[in-house]
Design a binder for these strands. Structure first.
Lengths: 198, 198
DNA sequence: TTAAATAATCTAACACTGTTAAACAAAGGT
DNA sequence: ACCTTTGTTTAACAGTGTTAGATTATTTAA
């Protein structure tokens, strides 16, 4: 009966292998170069076998996206743990967000890219919502009680996200801009919004 | 000898038809549904003749992108002409940018989408640079002379763009946010940056 | 007007893509 | 040993961008 477990473990392993191979290809050649046959080649199987583990290609991308959000959430957790002042924590969280975007560039593109299938976003599984909630909660914490309405927190959250995400996407298409300029704008924007909301 | 001109006019016409058909398909089914055979169907030809007018599919997308930037530039020109105060002009320009993004959603995605081929951006033909220059110049105009260094203008330009583009992309993936909230954040951000830079 | 040359257009194919159905092989249980 | 289930592959379909060759239509020259 233990062989059942071994086989389940093996199945799980090739599932993991599929995802690992996918992420490898995406990192090497960009996510538009990801093909079922290329994945199959890398895990030394033929393409149809992948459909035993994932419904289709989108399901693979969805899973990668989910894992990306989990990773981002963990990085934010670390950022929080390294500071005590809420404002410092929030800043560290956004910088973690920024660093993640460039450390896992292709990942970020799949996670936030305009081109992604919108259905994935509508599902909005908890893992995907987690980083957003972490930021939302921290923003709420910083805003003084007398201003703290849901709408106000929302506004600030979207302002933050817009600035950071906008800056990231602009830097992904045009790499010409200097890193100092970027960090300058980023830090300025973050501290600006933080001071403005308390 | 006038027949030569007629023929050239006809050639130009089918070139225009190809672009018109493309934009139609893109608007109807999104830019990922654009295929050479679908274009050919729409202009009542077969696929290979498109290659008489465009080197490949990317060339078509590039041309559409160029035309998008031209259109955006014109809209900005109108925005300028409708105000006299530079700060009002700049605000109107960004709002024109915002409106363009949603009026020509697919266009904007092709123009600024993270997924686009980066080579198109490296070429950076004048038409593509035009709207950027218009904004840059207007920002420069508003900044008082004592602060007016190239780096400072750059910083402000990128801050603007980040906020607006970020807000746009976020709203393109998630439509849930209320329009009032968006306009609020947009106007707040624009006036905020404007007051901060003079 | 007819013949040759040129231009315009299409057919067919190649090498890909995601995806599915059917065939096959290997293992397990009875 | 047989049957069933599971894992895996082969072959195919419909679609993609793109190109070479054949075909048709038009213009030019004799």
């Amino acid at each position: 009966m233990a062989s059942k477990e071994r086989i389940l473990r093996l199945k799980d392993e090739t599932r993991t292998n599929i995802l690992a191979a996918s992420i490898e290809i995406v990192k090497e050649e960009g996510w538009q170069a990801l093909s079922m046959r290329k994945i199959a080649d890398k895990i030394e199987y033929t393409a149809p076998i992948i459909y035993e583990y994932f419904a289709n290609k989108d399901a693979i991308l969805n899973e990668l996206t989910r894992q990306g959000f989990v990773k981002l959430g963990n990085l934010m957790q670390v950022a929080i743990s390294e500071h005590s002042d809420p404002a410092d924590q929030l800043e560290a969280m956004w910088i973690a967000y920024w660093n993640f975007a460039f450390a896992e560039k292709e990942m970020y593109q799949v996670m936030y890219g305009v081109e992604m299938n919108c259905c994935a976003m509508q599902t909005m599984c908890p893992d995907i919502q987690a980083p957003m909630n972490m930021l939302w909660d921290k923003i709420e914490e910083i805003i003084p009680v007398e201003k703290r309405t849901e709408e106000y927190v929302d506004t600030k959250y979207y302002t933050f996200w817009s600035v950071v995400h906008g800056l990231i996407s602009i830097n992904m298409t045009r790499k010409s801009t200097s890193d100092e300029l970027n960090k300058q704008v980023l830090k300025d924007a973050i501290t600006g919004i933080i001071t403005s909301m308390r």
